[in-house]
Design a protein around this nucleic acid. Structure first.
Lengths: 209, 209
DNA sequence: TAGATTGTTAATCGATTAACAATC
DNA sequence: TAGATTGTTAATCGATTAACAATC
């Protein structure tokens, strides 16, 4: 069904999902590409092209059923299967992720956190146990983990990524502010908060251009 | 100097800055578009095109001076002027931002946080005072603020944005998981953590396509 | 049925890549 | 000078938009 799906489309998919969820919550059951485009600041054409990368989920003369389309896009995004996660680094960012409500609501289940701080080891955050960083390999030997959240200072991130790879983890959500080297069969998606803030700074500096 | 700069270029600029900072820290003083491209997974052509949106910062037969180019890009990103910030919402994300080292290092100075929780009001995070949300307008009347960081639950974010606008704030770094309506003369850059995670989920689900 | 809106093909636009003269 | 690498123009590629027949 899906031939090659471009990066541009993949980047927009979560936005569709988010808007459709809001529409569903607001009691909207039907929507046209025109209306959805107005809402998302996209052209109706683009919306139809994007959706038709995956199949014809609409009906001529009617538009799209909100809950049906949301279901399809959720499936396409892989949100129907649960993802078992660990968080490496129990600092402020790691804990913020652990407690982020949408994180568990969308099927990302955190089973453990890891840190080097003896003060934290043995404790919990939101019911999630904090293990010693030294126990990472042993833990991964006994537990299947889909995604590792990397929430460490920059200088520790590359080493942690190698250790995760060697223990079989093949997907990383990286908050460390650096581009990590990784094998081809490991997926790494970066958050790079400072990049986002610097884009804001750029736009402020060039407001009148 | 800069004609129209495309979104694609703006999105890459912080990456240049980050890599150049790492190179500088590693003691590298000179780099060619070829070498920088290898490092950043971009073509040399694209790097030269990107940089030349802003001016000819290189030298034929030599390449670019790392510290000089970093300086230019920092300036282009608006990092030479300090940005006065407030953080609206003193939950885990707000506090994570407040303590994020690069935040203050790159000239983003947080002068206050705001929250509705009586337990938090009057306290501090990392030396930053937490004010009552009710005092937002009074505070903004007395203090110039360049950027508001929105770190509130979704349902409170739109109202907070209006209040910020009415008190003169014209730039928002938004962590609430929703696309906020805003006037044309207000800049809003979204972080949308869940979008980023869902992109990872998509790529995991479609690994073998 | 008539009206509306999709799915899909064709046209356009913009971004990326290639090429090469300029020049350090 | 010769070699290397930029700055910049031209070519290519891909993404977005427009158009319209299909059809609910």
């Amino acid at each position: 069904m899906a031939g090659h799906v471009s990066d541009a489309v993949i980047r927009r998919l979560p936005g569709y999902y988010r808007h459709l969820r809001e529409l569903e919550a607001a009691g909207v059951t039907q929507i046209s590409s025109q209306e959805l485009g107005d809402r998302m600041h996209l052209t109706p054409s683009q919306i139809r092209q994007d959706i038709n990368c995956f199949g014809g989920f609409g009906r001529q003369g009617y538009g799209y059923r909100v809950s049906e389309l949301k279901g399809h896009i959720g499936e396409i995004l892989g949100l129907t299967n649960e993802h078992v996660c660990i968080i490496v680094g129990a600092g402020h960012i790691g804990c913020a992720v652990a407690r982020y409500p949408s994180f568990s609501r969308e099927g990302f289940r955190t089973i453990a956190m890891f840190d080097v701080d003896p003060e934290k080891i043995g404790g919990t955050t939101d019911g999630i146990p904090i293990h010693a960083m030294d126990d990472l390999e042993a833990f991964l030997g006994e537990n299947h983990v889909d995604i590792a959240v990397l929430a460490l200072p920059r200088r520790f991130a590359q080493d942690a990524l190698h250790r995760l790879y060697d223990s079989g983890v093949r997907a990383v959500w990286n908050f460390a502010p650096t581009d990590l080297a990784h094998p081809d069969d490991m997926l790494v998606v970066n958050v790079h908060l400072m990049d986002s803030l610097q884009q804001l700074s750029y736009r402020m500096a060039h407001r009148d251009d």
